[in-house]
Design a protein around this nucleic acid. Sequence first.
RNA 1: GCCGCGUUCGUCUAGGGGUCCAGGACGCCGCCCUUUCACGGCGGUAGCACGGGUUCAAAUCCCGUACGCGGUACCA
Length: 493
Amino acid sequence: MSVRVRFAPSPTGFLHIGGLRTALYNYLFARHNGGKFILRIEDTDQSRYVENAEQDIIDSLEWTGMVIDEGPGKGGDFGPYRQSERKDLYHKYAKQLVEEGHAYYAFDTVDEIEEMRERLKKSGNPSPKYDAITRQSMKNSLTLPQDEVKKRLDAGEEYVVRLKVPRRETVKFEDEIRGVVSFDTDGLDDQVLVKSDGMPTYHLANVVDDHTMEITHVIRGEEWLSSAPKHILLYNAFGWEPPTLAHLPLIMSPSGGKLSKRKAETEGIPINTKDYISGHYESDALVNFLAYLGWSPGDDSEIHDMKSLSELFTLDRVSKGGAVFNHKKLMWYNENYIREHSIAELMPGVKELVEAEGFEIPSDEFLTKVIELLHERVSKVDEFVSMGAFFFEAPETYDEKAVKKWKDDSPVILKTYRDKIEALPDEKFEAVTLKDKIKETIEEHEVGFGKLMMPLRLAVSGQGFGPELTPALELIGKQESLDRIDTIIEKLA
RNA sequence: GCCGCGUUCGUCUAGGGGUCCAGGACGCCGCCCUUUCACGGCGGUAGCACGGGUUCAAAUCCCGUACGCGGUACCA
């Protein structure tokens, strides 16, 4: 049977980094095995539905380079791919379960259940459940006479469908990542399958969909591990073969705990995929970084693109423990990918950013040189703009820390250099010559290299760091360079 | 509380009885290169949670403890 996996997010917000990683592992697994990657939207909780979430999920996956084989908008033989559009299916199967004695109707109100739990807690049961024991004293089709049940149903009274969880049974299954996991059914609630608003719960919809969509492997976050026995019980009740289960370790916050939106924000970690898009991260870098958060190929390699990751990825190399998100390592990956990209590849993106800042780009050759000069020192594309702004416009302010290196003798030394390069014929205004003039100047003044370099860099760029200086001067041009030197002498002398 | 799952350098991880006084990467520190800042090169720092077994031999297998995380809803 060919491999079919699904990524099944709920559209309750923007796609966050944890969800993206789950999607990635599913995608990699599908590609590795020549299978299909399916997107299914689990929109069964109408109260948490967020309007643009679905589009955000699709856009995010596209940005990272994951290609959806089947899904909403995309189509496929197993649609519809939104759970809200499959309601009839769930009802059909829920009904079947009731008829076969695996589930039952329950008419208790939320308050009544709450009251039952409170009462039991007081009498010494620390974790009361709606289970094989307590259901006997509740209002449901197991305790009510048949005609009464029918009457309530016909009258349109609100009800839920609950799974009839057997007592004293052990549910065992083999998790691809964790090995054999077992649970006792006595710890389980009679899980609600159909809510009173007519929507299925995750558990029912999930099992029905995975089966009818012929999903072979369910790869999801560890937060689902505790629900897995409920799902196994459901597969058994239907008489279906469960798919292979694999529960992924969670992505943790540096301060501990699952990386949540709130925690990420206070720790300065972008949490949503769209933040990485708008933050100008390299998608290859994010993918590479995320792939290694809980998985490794087993050798010493670190850099792999999507294609290479697909070839290497197997579930048995996924680790079991949670993985802490390390933003510095992400930045290292990002830097790496920028270096690996050619100037031509970088060009369109940088151009767009430079133009967005309102800078005039003299020519493509000019921009090419700017990118060349900055290529080795930038770790994110937007830094081409922040670090390279001075190529397009004279600095308006000078970096405070760098200004501290401006000494009393700076104006004289700078002036000497200024006059030397002013005397240069235009065709000689080039990096090598400009560098020779620097040497001449410091020799004349008997000072170190930095004595001229720092003030000169400050004059030209307004910063204390940046690309190689003399090629930058050449690019900016003679007149502009002289003007900038004059300006700083006037301002700081 | 109960149930489940975890635990190798600060972080991500390799390693699955002897080849490990534990390897790689990020970070951090130092040196070299560059008469600047970076890049790069070289080197260093630092870890098998703890306690019992099993075994000639344990980071590796078993048990327990501790700690962490997840779940415990008509949320997913």
